[in-house]
């Protein structure tokens, strides 16, 4: 009788370890190694720029005049650079090949 009880306990223990290892217990709020890995991946993805990042130099919640002026200064830099980009597009469109001789 004791042998049977011991065998059942061993089977239950092995099944429990397997369930924990494979993350099956996650639905009950217990994180196994598989789930922890997924959580890390999610964190990495978020840190890797998957989520849209703000291009503002100040916090999106900072509505002070100083912050808005800082934001507009960054905007002016981009607008000036766009002027240069536009010139580059024109140059590339009007480019002509150097005539070759042979």
């Amino acid at each position: 009788m004791m042998k049977w009880i011991g065998a059942v306990l061993i089977v239950v223990a092995v099944a429990g370890v397997y369930a924990w290892w494979s993350g099956m217990l996650g639905q009950f709020g217990i994180a196994g190694p598989a789930q922890m890995q997924n959580a890390e991946e999610a964190d990495n993805q978020a840190a890797g720029g998957q989520a849209p990042a703000s291009d503002l130099p100040t916090a999106t919640t900072d509505t002070s005049t100083a912050a808005i002026e800082q934001d507009t200064a960054a905007l002016d830099v981009q607008l000036q650079a766009l002027q240069n980009d536009s010139a580059s597009v024109d140059t590339s469109l009007n480019d002509a090949a150097v005539p070759q001789e042979y």
């Binding site: 291009d55 503002l56 999106t60 808005i68 905007l75 766009l82 536009s86 580059s88 597009v89």
Partner: peptide, 25 residues
């Protein structure tokens, strides 16, 4: 020109994002 246009459009998207942020504020 194809690449220059793509680069300019990319910068424009950044400028638009900043402008939307400023607009929200």
């Amino acid at each position: 020109p194809q690449t220059h246009i793509a680069a300019m459009a990319d910068r424009m998207a950044t400028a638009i994002n900043i402008m939307i942020g400023v607009g929200n504020k």
